[in-house]
Design a protein around this nucleic acid. Structure first.
Lengths: 188, 188
DNA sequence: CCCGTGATGACAGTTACTGCCATCAGTATA
DNA sequence: TATACTGATGGCAGTAACTGTCATCACGGG
């Protein structure tokens, strides 16, 4: 074994999740997280830019999956549906982690700063999706609009999937909401 | 005259805007803002919850105007168009303050923390719009979706209005983007 | 003339975050 | 085998955002 126990980063993530759950985000200090992970506060900030980021850095692979799915969506697909496919791909990545997602979301929902971070991450994803649409030849503002629609649909689908028992399938919920979106914008 | 110079709050807003413009948000301390306003740091935090909020608290009347416009929109209007009317009403409030809006937005665009705050304010407005739609008898998820669409349209319209000379009218830009949105969701 | 009220100042305390230097196991290299 | 290098960590001091608490004192009402 090396000089230090391995997986410092995941130990920090684990410790943070536990402490944020137990006492709440605001009542947890970074020093406490580091201590539970067997590290120092300074090391925490080497792995995560700030106290909030420890809950979000795991989302990078999820994001890449979505952007990648958009790049591989069939070319003739209209922008909204291409985005829909991408979001579905992301949904599948979450499908079998509902318990973890619930636990994490309970922490976020209880704290305004964490909600800010979550929103900006989704905004950044929307921006990446708009870039992807432009790579497909979609012009602005259609690209920006379709991307934002996709994120809005995901957010609402995710919320429903988490707190209602009758929405067991996230990808399916995304699709239903996408259809609903089309009805709503058609003026129904 | 009273014991203190009046308008402490607006003096703080003014000082903050100046300093954020001159040195940037991150390079400005609250103590400096307070000093320029002829007050103390402690007093700053009595007027604003945090260093960011000083740029956003003025938005409360704007928000009320929008929600109010939604409540007064013609009853038979489909949700998306009712939201569109509300956003237009908000747009008119900004129409003759493009210079101020540009200056403020330049500050926000240069700082991630400020973008987080801006996004969460818009998210909160979306939530208020969804509430308003429910008061009009619109069911979920149509209410949430239409509200989010309205905010997305506003964001993109606002951006274009600020940095392009050929979009001089914000309300008009909102309307154009709303039409574009309908085309996009229709699969065009 | 006194008394409560409200906006402010003063000050200490916590904690998120940063910069800088030290440490030292493992690895490559001479 | 000796030496230099690297990378992850610890330690520690410093800044600045925020909070709690108490003091001050013009103003208005009684």
């Amino acid at each position: 074994m090396g000089r230090w126990k391995p997986d410092a980063r995941s130990r920090l993530e684990q410790a943070a999740l536990e402490l944020y759950s137990e006492r709440g985000f605001g009542q947890t200090t970074v020093a406490e997280i580091a201590e539970r992970a067997g590290l120092t506060e300074r090391t925490f900030f080497r792995h995560f830019a700030d106290k909030r980021e420890v809950l979000f850095s795991g989302g990078s692979v999820w994001r890449e999956r979505i952007v990648n799915a958009l790049d591989h969506a069939p070319a003739p697909l209209p922008p909204v549906d291409a985005v829909g496919m991408a979001i579905e791909a992301g949904a599948m990545l979450l499908q079998d982690r509902r318990n973890y997602a619930r636990r994490r979301q309970a922490i976020i929902s209880a704290n305004a700063e964490l909600q800010e971070r979550e929103r900006i991450k989704l905004a950044s994803l929307a921006s990446a999706l708009a870039d992807g649409l432009r790579r497909r030849g979609v012009d602005d503002p259609a690209a920006s609009l379709a991307a934002e629609m996709g994120i809005a649909v995901f957010r609402i689908a995710f919320e429903r999937w988490l707190d209602e028992a009758n929405h067991p399938d996230l990808a399916r919920t995304v699709n239903e909401l996408l259809d609903e979106l089309k009805l709503v914008t058609a003026g129904k």
